[in-house]
Amino acid sequence: MGKILVKNKEMVVPGEVIVEGMDYLPAGNVFRENDKIIAETIGLVNVDNRLVKLIPLTGFYKAKKNDVVIGQVRNITFSGWLMDIGCSDLATLNLRDASSDFIDKKADLTKIYNFNDTVIAKITNVTKTGYIDLTMRGPGLTKLRGGRLIKVAASKVPRIIGKQGSMIHIIKEKTNCKVIVGQNGFVWIQSEDPVNEKKAIDTIRLIEKESATEGLTEKVEGLLK
């Protein structure tokens, strides 16, 4: 019979044995060695029935198909753009996926998206060798003009958005900012008033820092009053 050695939601560091026995299955960020399931990164243990996984506390964003992310142009090739989306590799945005408008083959690509331009894009494909394909054809996938880009850990994104968008709704409403959160942890903020912009950034940093505390929504609400 399997034995769980670590309590649910407790923190583990790499190399720590979480479960002994063959009747549990390793899921994300853990691996099996003989009859033991061992942590691979720093994270919180999550045992769901027989699945053992870790919610990572650090690390890079892992690209997933159909994620909507925010990217920044890092390089321009003959057939498209290379975007930084917080992965180890740059993601490719192909010319024909770049816009719903027609783009002439001879067009100057810097006129469409220039270096350091920020865009919202969707991941269409992730290959095993690490290539990531993006598309910008679809509702809401546009270039972001102006504003400010901050980066948070991708694992904190669900907390920033909140249950059914409750947290992000509060931030948007109280600070009067436009806020867009990408699944990769890139957050774009724009406001007419720099004071409000600063407030929104501070709030997001607070959420990132105290993501595990309970009643965070109330705390944020109180802070922004």
Binding site: V13, P14, G15, N29, F31, E33, I38, E40, T41, I42, P56, L57, T58, G59, F60
Partner: peptide, 11 residues
């Protein structure tokens, strides 16, 4: 390395 979130088998 652990702090950077690199997958590791042991420390």
């Amino acid at each position: 390395l652990a702090d950077a979130g690199i997958p590791m088998k042991d420390l």
